Amino acid sequence: MSSFTRLTIDDIARLASVSRTTASLVLNGRAGAYRISESTSQRVLAVAAEHQFQPSQSARALRSRASHTLGLVVPQLTNFAHASLAEALEPLARAAGYQLMTVSSGDDPEQEAAGIGQLLARQVDGLIVVPCSADPAAYAGWAKRLPLVFADRRVGGSPTPFIVTAAAAATEALVADAIARGAHEILYIGGGASLSTSADRLAGYRAALDQAGIVPADDWISERDYLRASGQTRLADWVARHGRYPQAVFTGGITLLEGVLAFVNAHGGAGPDFLLTFDDHPLLDCLPQAVQSVAQDSHALAAESLAAVLALLAGQPAEPERWIDASVRRRQR
């Protein structure tokens, strides 16, 4: 049996010596409309504050048919880019009058569907999803039930509005900069090939090589997932075949870079001459080897995603697609 005491609106009313209706009106900000005296209002609020009481959001949602909550679905909260998106979005949503509820899909479609189902069961008013499936049908049903927008990734063939980073252009600039500084052998380690983020980053990599007249060897490009172990294994496989490090390595995400660095640290040697990665992290400033990176604008992604879902909530059309510029971080050692 739980030792915790769950207070109800009836308890607050009894402690404040008012009716349940009066307590409810005060706590829901409607005292003025019903001419409840200031002294009574202050007494109710003081009792509620003393007992850390908050009105039931579920009851409020039933009355107003709006919960003033939004759902965010991300593949991994340990992924710095997704964590940064959630961190940027939460205060923006609160300022707009909404509480953000975040769930993780683990980059698994079934887990994603279960998480969205739980958010809908809690009556969120709208959804912002970093999709893990490339199948538009996976989201069509949800989009009919409530406002839904995609952030960070898009789904081909889906009419759902999306807000994503202009990754191809940023990746092309990053790789082209390395080529200009002497890189001519660049191993590409990417995530899941079916994801739009992977396609955009690979397109930028290929564009930079094409512009420089470099034809990638058959074993330069590989895509699996965004797990750290995949970055480590991919570099290990290449070194085992060639007996040396590649001149340069581009990783499609910071977690893949972690795997590359783990291999280099475990096996010694100078490592690749050039390390390039999509996504940025403050720790990259502290490494002994310079890592050139693409820094996404998490605040702009969050702000535009929120604007899109709020537009849909207001019955207005959201911009169907929004591309957010990223910046290249150049470091020297």
Rank of each mutant, 00 (worst) to 15 (best):
128 I>F: 00
109 P>L: 05
107 D>L: 00
45 L>C: 02
47 V>L: 03
85 L>C: 04
204 G>N: 13
230 S>K: 05
125 D>F: 03
322 R>N: 06
16 A>W: 10
239 V>C: 14
202 L>W: 12
145 R>D: 01
213 G>R: 14
85 L>S: 04
144 K>F: 00
102 T>W: 03
188 Y>D: 02
71 G>K: 02
106 G>L: 01
236 A>P: 04
156 G>W: 00
279 D>E: 15
251 T>R: 06
27 L>C: 13
33 A>Q: 14
230 S>W: 07
113 A>G: 03
192 G>D: 14
226 Y>I: 12
208 A>D: 06
40 T>V: 14
307 A>N: 12
235 L>E: 01
160 T>F: 05
20 R>K: 15
20 R>W: 12
283 L>K: 07
166 A>P: 01
158 S>H: 05
154 R>W: 01
138 A>M: 01
146 L>A: 09
202 L>R: 15
300 A>Y: 07
255 T>Y: 02
261 L>C: 11
241 R>V: 09
63 R>Y: 02
258 E>W: 04
228 R>H: 09
68 H>W: 03
156 G>R: 08
239 V>N: 06
122 R>T: 00
207 A>F: 09
267 H>R: 11
5 T>V: 15
262 A>E: 12
230 S>P: 02
79 N>M: 11
119 L>E: 01
161 P>A: 12
121 A>E: 15
141 G>H: 09
277 T>R: 10
210 D>E: 14
174 L>C: 07
287 L>S: 09
250 F>V: 04
30 R>Y: 01
72 L>W: 00
245 Y>S: 13
70 L>M: 10
289 Q>D: 13
60 R>I: 12
157 G>R: 08
218 D>Q: 14
116 I>E: 03
206 R>N: 09
302 A>M: 11
225 D>E: 07
82 H>N: 15
151 A>T: 15
43 R>Y: 00
122 R>P: 01
